[in-house]
């Protein structure tokens, strides 16, 4: 899960050099690349790790060898333990995303599209945003106890803020020249929103969604570490008690894979929804 800075470059037709801009991201020519496949060093690290474990340099109580982790992963999958934990955690994410995306999109549109919304909504949301939302865990536990509510809420907050910010600024940044052209073409205010403001906000919104998803997974992990009686976090915590470092690593790998999976889904979505940005 990377919370790295993602940049969107929504291009507009008023960009005078649009026609020349057909080159994709810069790629190192094949001939200048070293003749080593990119996974080679990764494989080397795994081999060193396995070797360190085999020679007792690395105690399995600190970190289990890759072979054991793989075997444990297989065992947990086969006996259904991983599956049921996965189901619980995914359920939490899904519910959190549902609430978070709904809140982020509706608040972002409201404050982006209406002056009143901007004047009344934006200040409190911006103020709340400065709070590290993961720091709210103690309060959430006091308010909502230790069951599902604080976890789902934490995830929802994780995704809502980046989404709100990107939609708010995306709508605000719609090209005034396009809006003016739409006015001359006889668009009503509602048509201008539908045909101009929303499509120009979409690239920003999708970047915000990707960042939000990263935050959502992070929130889930934190929430499950603090307290859980089921799910991936519970599995990991439980394993810690018994020094089962192999199970801990399996849990972490699954978190990573899930994060990668949702990110891929949004990127696919991006490519489909923003196909107008590239050549036909």
């Amino acid at each position: 899960m990377s919370a790295s800075v993602l940049t969107a470059s929504p291009r507009t037709i008023s960009d005078p050099q649009v026609g020349d801009d057909v080159a994709g991201p810069s790629v190192i020519p094949r001939s200048r690349r070293p003749a080593v496949p990119r996974w080679a060093s990764l494989l080397g690290v795994l081999a060193l790790w396995q070797l360190a474990s085999a020679t007792k340099l690395l105690s399995p109580d600190l970190l289990a060898p890759p072979s054991t982790i793989a075997a444990t992963g297989w065992r947990l999958t086969a006996n259904g333990e991983l599956g049921s934990a996965l189901l619980v955690s995914s359920g939490r994410i899904a519910l959190g995303l549902l609430f978070g995306v709904t809140a982020g999109v509706s608040l972002g549109l409201l404050s982006g599209l209406s002056r009143w919304g901007d004047a009344l909504l934006d200040p409190p949301v911006q103020a709340l945003r400065t709070l590290p939302h993961l720091g709210l865990v103690p309060l959430f536990i006091l308010w909502f106890g230790i069951d599902e509510t604080p976890k789902v809420l934490l995830i929802a907050m994780g995704v809502a803020f980046p989404l709100y910010l990107s939609i708010h600024s995306g709508v605000r940044q719609s090209d005034p020249k396009l809006l003016e052209a739409a006015r001359v073409l006889g668009f009503t205010a509602r048509q201008r929103v539908w045909h101009v403001s929303l499509p120009s906000a979409l690239p920003h919104a999708l970047v915000g969604l990707r960042q939000g998803l990263g935050m959502a997974w992070l929130s889930l992990i934190v929430a499950e570490q603090v307290n859980a009686s089921s799910g991936l976090g519970f599995m990991i915590n439980n394993a810690r008690e018994f020094l089962q470092t192999d199970v801990v690593v399996v849990g972490l790998v699954v978190y990573a894979v899930l994060g990668l999976l949702t990110d891929t889904v949004v990127r696919k979505l991006e490519r489909r929804a923003l196909s107008w940005q590239g050549p036909l």
Partner: peptide, 24 residues
């Protein structure tokens, strides 16, 4: 009725060319 063509084309980049022509 009045129509305007601006200094820049001001086409909506997310609509196909033909949709831009009959937009509005």
């Amino acid at each position: 009725s009045v129509s305007v063509a601006f200094q820049e084309p001001r086409l909506l980049p997310w609509r196909r060319v033909w949709r831009n022509v009959v937009l509005g």
